[in-house]
Design a protein around this nucleic acid. Structure first.
Lengths: 250, 250
DNA sequence: TAAATAGTGTCTTTGAGACACTATTTC
DNA sequence: GAAATAGTGTCTCAAAGACACTATTTA
């Protein structure tokens, strides 16, 4: 920021977009919201929902992300419980074949997003299980969106450890086993039910009791679990560490 | 990314800058590199080093951050051991009074940066102890740089816990007590020397022995400490948790 | 009735932290 | 010699995880 002259014409144009990695759990699988591109490049390819920041309307970055998400999902800003956070910015010179585009990526988590409806310029919008994507060829998604998705997933997995993020995937009232399936789904690993239960209740501020009990137990029998709400903790102490990575990534 | 038309003229211009939070330890204090602005706005105010991304030259974002840092410090890219990572992007519509500027902030850590020399458009460049800034008035720094600095410091403090980042503040060979002072300086808390020593050696891949011993002990006596190199771990397992924040932030 | 699950009890192992102690160096 | 520090030993307590068990629900 040491420039004395800001003449916009002195600099080649940069376009700023936001792209959103929206995650939710459907039928026991982690899903990401994708849209099918109408125009070129990457026509008819799947991509993350996103679009240009409305510079002229003094739109903030977070604001733009909320808008883009709303356009595809119809979620009512402020009415639906959605957790949104900035992920990272991607600005490789060749990431868009036509001009320099810098994309600020966001990460969104929600319990039960409304069914997607194609909005904006997308021809089609759909929830897709990430398992069918992240191990597949990275070229299935447009631009560098496979990389963005991978980064988003890793961020989500990490944040489950030390924040109460998992509650963002749950409805307002939820059971401990329900919360456990969130962890198991995102981490892709089974957790010990008994130890998980005790652990969650022992972390201050993670969940708080509603005093009520679920109407029905699971589909296969067992006692009716108790209902909880998200607590007021913003960090989990002690954290819930992911199993099976003791050695650390070298 | 659902737009079919990319005509740059259809969108008001956006400027992309990178700003760097460069941290190092000098004389037992955590320092940040600041430059004094030559031009308006915020003329003569201190600011983070940074500048426009050279879009026309197909400069990547990381590349731009390296360049900006080099301009102020004279560090030779590739020759000096510097850790550089993207911090976060700041794009509030009014963060620059003249036009829409989106800034991708970077975080840099180094053991012993060269003395700063004003480069680019900065009138003056200097290392400043962060203790004299972050608790001071946020208006001392230009733009939203006080916020960026605060975010950078928090990121650095957090990463000391679960990554071997502290070794980036040390020379190629260092002693355990030296590593401990890095933690104490960044966290602003004294650590138990004995427990820290054992802990560091117990984490696989954190440090590896050189088999040699420092020439001299500290200034006030004691045996000569052994020398170590950074190990190959990219994550610390188990992590070194910060003391004194058991309750967690609610 | 059989199978599955919620929730609790208990034991073992690991790690964090407090305290103590020896050996070595500087002033 | 006095003071400070490097490094190790040991003890206590908290927490993670394995295993077991009871009570409750569904099919």
């Amino acid at each position: 920021m040491g420039e004395e002259h800001y003449d916009p014409n002195a600099y080649p144009p940069v376009a700023a977009t936001v792209d959103v990695v929206a995650l939710t759990i459907r039928e026991g699988h982690l899903n990401v919201l994708l849209v099918r591109r109408g125009g070129s490049p990457y026509q008819y390819r799947w991509a993350l929902p996103g679009g240009f920041v409305r510079v002229g309307k003094s739109e903030g970055l977070d604001e733009a992300a909320v808008r883009e998400l709303a356009e595809e999902t119809g979620l009512r800003d402020g009415h639906d419980r959605v957790h949104l956070e900035q992920l990272r910015t991607y600005g490789a010179p060749d990431r868009d074949p036509r001009m320099r585009v810098i994309s600020i990526a966001y990460l969104a988590f929600g319990p039960q997003f409304p069914d997607p409806r194609p909005g904006g310029d997308a021809a089609e919008a759909r929830w897709r299980p990430v398992a069918t994507l992240d191990s597949g060829d990275p070229g299935e998604l447009a631009f560098d969106h496979a990389t963005i998705l991978a980064d988003g997933l890793e961020r989500a997995r990490a944040k489950l450890e030390y924040t109460p993020l998992a509650t963002a995937f749950c409805p307002a009232e939820f059971t401990i086993p329900q919360l456990r399936t969130v962890y198991e789904t995102v981490w892709g690993e089974d957790l010990h039910a008994g130890n998980f239960h005790r652990k969650v209740l022992s972390v201050p501020g993670f969940v708080e009791s509603t005093g009520t009990t679920a109407k029905h137990s699971g589909t296969r029998g067992g006692p009716r679990p108790r209902l909880y709400r998200a607590g007021d903790a913003r960090l989990l102490h002690p954290a819930l560490l992911r199993p099976g990575q003791e050695a650390g990534i070298r």
